[in-house]
Design a protein around this nucleic acid. Structure first.
Ligand code: ZN
Ligand code: ZN
Lengths: 270, 270
DNA sequence: GCTTTACGGTGGAAC
DNA sequence: GCTGTCCGTCGGAAC
């Protein structure tokens, strides 16, 4: 037993070590060169489309879209204030260019919320980097936790009204590029992430199987008990709750047998 | 698959139904008569002693012992204020008697915190009702959740400095009588509670076994792979990285065999 | 036999 | 392909 726990521990420690190393490496790589991230297709479930964005365009007016940033005043508890998209300052006369095609017609939301200068056309043509994922998708696809998804520094969030009902909790949108970078640091690479994903899938499957087997066994057991009870009751009914109706066995015999319970008695003839 | 989930659902619903019924019954029973709760021994792990109390007596002076009660001012969020034991008001000239032995010398802490008039002697002689359990013990023994343990109305708490280190989080003490009543309502009875306890124990055991088996299998697999790798390397070494050292097979033979890799060649003698 | 928190998994509600 | 919260389990930290 102690050995299992130790194995677990070792694994955790190794993971963390790997994590730290990868973090350094990844950070360096990204800041040194602007080389694109791995282009390997990640279509586990989340779409590569920009549906969420489209949705926003139609409801831009009454949306409470915004993101969270540090409050200027340095109070002991780090106060955060939600700014609407319009309240986020930016310089419209900037000569910044799209990082993909060098266009000057940048997408304002991406620039303001995600700090990524990119044009609408490139957002749609490079979903591997610029598609948006909801928080739930982010958790499912990249196996990030709530705590990690709360890191607004590295994972800026575009809050939008819930598409199901606007009174519900805001929908939280993340940029795929950010999630992928984070996940690579966390898991040590996309391959390791896929491994963990597979591990959990098989575990889920095994859990299901066990549950199913158990329920079948339970049902069978119950059925058997009920059958046994039924038989017992029937036996009792026959043996106790009737008047014997004797009939002679054969013609010459002095024996009689009850037609219900089979009780056989000798008849003394006087 | 859908069947399993439904079974689970049914079970939950049944539990809740039972819960509601039991709640009514239990509440009535307790308010109508002062009959003692089930005296069945519950010594799963927590002691029946009053150790925690003893501890308190020696450190009463600098303890921040207290309990939480509603703030008089009705603000929208229910403000709560922690009162120290001395700050809790009570009437020392009260003629209230010990509910067990009718003594007038009541335990002040029990009266103030738990609202139970009982004397020190009876606290020690009836641990089934008056022994104290830490929060962790309460969870372990009565299978209550954090949320339930937060119900200060039904489960008053006596906070005391942590016995391990006074700078750590306060120790939270509950009265066994309260916990037991709550657990009976929650689970539908002490028997059902024991059933659930047993269920979890076996589950834990099964989990452990599975984990162990898995780790053994993993180890075995790894060992096998390593062994295979070792052999392969050895084979390669032998077949590639050596000069053949031929020796004649038998005396008259014109065949020769390498002493390292076993390669056999015919030797043409001129 | 000290407590809080974090995590993974899950249904149900509706911020 | 919506989000919070809760539950059970667990190991580590130190309120
Ligand atoms: Zn572009
Ligand atoms: Zn008494």
């Amino acid at each position: 037993m102690a050995r299992e726990l130790t194995d677990d521990q070792k694994q955790k420690i190794e993971e963390n070590r790997k994590k730290a190393l990868e973090r350094l490496k990844a950070t360096k790589a990204r800041t040194d060169t602007a080389k694109p991230p791995e282009q390997k297709k990640r279509l586990r479930g989340s779409k590569m489309s920009t549906n969420y964005y489209e949705y926003n365009l139609t409801t831009m007016r009454d949306t409470k879209a915004g993101f969270i940033e540090e409050d200027p005043q340095k109070s002991p508890e780090k106060r955060r204030k939600i700014l609407t998209l319009d309240e986020i300052p930016y310089d419209p006369s900037s000569t910044q260019k799209c990082r993909e095609c060098a266009s000057l017609d940048l997408d304002v939301a991406y620039l303001k919320v995600f700090k990524v200068p990119v044009c609408r056309k490139c957002i749609e043509s490079v979903p591997d980097k610029y598609s948006l994922l909801t928080k739930t998708e982010a958790k499912d696809d990249y196996l990030l936790t709530d705590g990690e998804l709360r890191d607004r520094e590295r994972l800026p969030v575009w809050e939008k009204p819930n598409p199901h009902k606007h009174t519900w909790n805001n929908m939280l949108l993340y940029l795929r590029e950010h999630l992928e970078a984070f996940a690579i640091e966390k898991w040590g690479g996309l391959e390791e992430l896929d491994g963990e994903f597979a591990r959990r899938e098989t575990e889920k499957q095994e859990r299901k199987e066990r549950k199913y087997k158990k329920s079948v066994a339970e049902l069978r057991k119950r059925t058997r008990v009920e059958e046994w009870e039924r038989k017992r009751r029937e036996r009792l009914r026959i043996e106790q709750a009737h008047e014997h109706t004797f009939e002679a066995i054969g013609d010459d015999s002095c024996e009689q047998k009850c037609t219900i319970c089979g009780l056989t008695v000798e008849v003394e003839e006087f």
